[in-house]
Design a protein around this nucleic acid. Structure first.
Lengths: 236, 236
DNA sequence: ACGGTAGGTGTACGCTGTACACCTGTCAAG
DNA sequence: CTTGACAGGTGTACAGCGTACACCTACCGT
């Protein structure tokens, strides 16, 4: 009777199953409730069992990052570098929006994981075959910074607040409270200017996607300009 | 005899003293050894005493961020917006290099602290008085992202690894290990291209300051171009 | 039939943040 | 001068964390 439940529960653990469960837990409950104990419970197993599949919690996080980065679309061939990279980065952005904990996790690791390296390598490859010198490609990678992985640090990023995935609470707390607005007039002015072409006066904060693409295109246009004029780090 | 030591030790705590000690501890020992207990010990006091001056550890971190942001140079008046902002951001960068733990701390808070808001407000003010529309100024702030606070996420950032301040270990681990280089040829190519105009062949990684200014100027130039041609979010 | 090994278990330790009760020194009002 | 409030440092205690280490058990090739 409870036998088949027992069998299910005993589906053998594996590094992959552990990582996927960890990602799911972080997605649903927030990264701050990803503890070895919670994760083990989700898997119907005792905490120490996890250590047979991941060395420690840091390695678990590295593995989770690799899972996430692995979800980014492969590069589309037969396009010019600019569109190829633009599409790839926007795909990365979609992925990271499914895993709001990932940006912070990625940035808190102090060395890139294999999957991240592979992704970066592939982006560089696109640049190189688009005619970029290794020199310029190098600087371009730095210039894009974390944006190349689909995110920029938004400074006031409501959606990344550790808690839930954020889709549910399309909350009201968009504008600044009035006494704050008084102390920071320029910010207030800017915040209200964020009602884009939407006619609703109380536009909910600002359109993250728009801002991301704005910055992305600003960079890509500048990069294209440097590329066309054969920029090198010696000149200028 | 031990009386004056006693007196010294008893120099009354204050929120300010707590915050400064916390910043010093994080600077010297790394953010990961900033615990309430360690901090209390540094101050010659019992852990719970700290809670009379900060509500909890999160508020302590907020306070530390405010201390750091307070170190950024004030804006220089009587300059065009571009140079003013460039100087301000490079000043912010210098500050954050003294406090390598700060970028991650700033990004992990989910709402900006008062000092950060004041800084951002002032930067927006510079843009506005440089003739920027509130609309464009808004997008510019987003485009700059965390770079506006003096840092970009460097992806492989040796200097931010939680441990010590990093000046001491001008270490060898700059280039990729050869088997990694083999698997990621484009990255390898780029890494070696990083020996700038320095004639030393094994140039140690790359010049962070150069990369930062490269990206900063790329953005500023693009922004200037948009500004001159009267960009608005409706057109384009 | 048997020993090795992969993988799940149980206990225990040191560390964390912090709630809560307590004590002590200082200062204002009676 | 006494008194009582109150700011601020203390001590104990608890739940939660990551994980070291010893153990047990089920399987597999010989």
């Amino acid at each position: 009777m409870a036998e088949q439940a027992e069998v299910l529960r005993r589906t053998p653990l594996s590094r992959d199953r552990v990582l996927r469960a960890a990602v799911a837990l972080a997605d649903e409950a927030g990264i701050e409730s990803l503890s070895m104990r919670n994760l083990a419970q989700d898997l119907g197993v005792v905490p120490m069992a996890l250590y047979k599949h991941v060395a420690n919690k840091d390695e678990l996080l590295d593995g989770m990052i690799d899972v996430v980065v692995g979800e980014i679309d492969p590069p589309v061939p037969d396009t010019d570098w600019k569109h190829a990279i633009r599409r790839r980065i926007l795909s990365a952005r979609q992925v990271l929006q499914r895993h709001p904990w990932a940006p912070l996790a990625i940035e808190s690791r102090n060395m890139a994981t294999p999957a991240v390296l592979a992704y970066l390598d592939s982006v560089v490859g696109t640049l190189r075959s688009g005619g970029f010198s290794a020199d310029l490609a190098h600087h371009v990678m730095h210039a894009m910074g974390s944006r190349i992985l689909g995110f920029s640090q938004e400074l006031f990023d409501a959606s990344r607040r550790a808690g839930r995935s954020g889709a549910t609470d399309a909350g009201p707390p968009a504008d600044l409270p009035p006494e704050v607005a008084a102390r920071f007039p320029h910010l207030a002015e800017i915040a209200t200017a964020a009602a884009h072409d939407d006619e609703s006066v109380v536009g909910q904060g600002c359109d993250d996607q728009f801002e991301f693409e704005f910055a992305l295109d600003l960079l890509l246009d500048g990069i294209e300009r440097l590329h066309r004029q054969g920029w090198t780090s010696s000149h200028r």
